[in-house]
Design a protein around this nucleic acid. Structure first.
Lengths: 115, 115
DNA sequence: GATTAATGACTTATAAATAAGTCAATTTGT
DNA sequence: ACAAATTGACTTATTTATAAGTCATTAATC
């Protein structure tokens, strides 16, 4: 029989892949420094050992909630150096968002720069 | 018939949830500033409009690869302020990881503090 | 203020992620 | 070097995320 075409796996940019890899490494570094085994971290996250391994290896298909949860547990700072600052940041950004347009519309008429 | 128990949705820590929310907001802020509609960003990411909406709203169940990809496209910096720095960071961390133990073992004997 | 596109919130079918388990290889601590 | 445990890489069944579509509402531009 003919080899069936695979469903064409999703592709990711280098920047995206590297960012995920950095996060995975950070989790692994902090986990080891805190002397936790992969299985122990998995239990704390409430996930399987397999998943923690994939997160640490930078698998882009992992749920972001699980990855961030693992990061939080081993003490990897996310966007801000500590928890209270993160909360402040959230409020600041909410404020900023309030000032921006709610939706983005394309120009009705093309910009006329041809006269 | 008896109401079937729901599978008990996964829970996330406040820190994890807030970090995801911050990322979603950042994507939205930058998207609007770049005058992209949700649908336009979705197309660039290669994902559905529904997904971009969920990412911006901080849904923890989104794939981390898609979230980071959206962030990269609208110019949200991840872990480092630019791309070349991120690559450097990746190498530095790899180096650091090489110096750490490959596995974490629990003590064979419990610490004897009871004599 | 009227038009019209964008957004948010759904639904459903399909594709993919996750959990659980196994086994070989590696690594740590004694 | 030995013994015991961790890790990495699989497999399979099941749960869950995603894409695609619809519709009502909101908001931007004219």
């Amino acid at each position: 029989m003919m080899p069936t075409d695979k469903p064409a796996a999703r592709t990711y940019s280098r920047y995206g892949r590297e960012a995920i890899a950095v996060l995975g490494q950070l989790i692994r570094i902090n986990r080891i420094e805190r002397k936790l085994s992969v299985a122990q971290l998995a239990e704390r996250v409430g996930a399987s050992r397999d998943l923690i391994q994939r997160i640490e290896q930078g698998d882009p298909r992992c749920g972001i909630g699980l990855a961030f949860e693992a990061a939080a547990i081993v003490g990897v700072p996310l966007f801000e150096e500590n928890r209270s600052r993160l909360t402040l940041r959230l409020n600041e950004q909410e404020e900023k968002l309030r000032l921006l347009p709610k939706s983005v519309r394309k120009k009705a008429t093309v910009v006329k720069d041809d006269f």
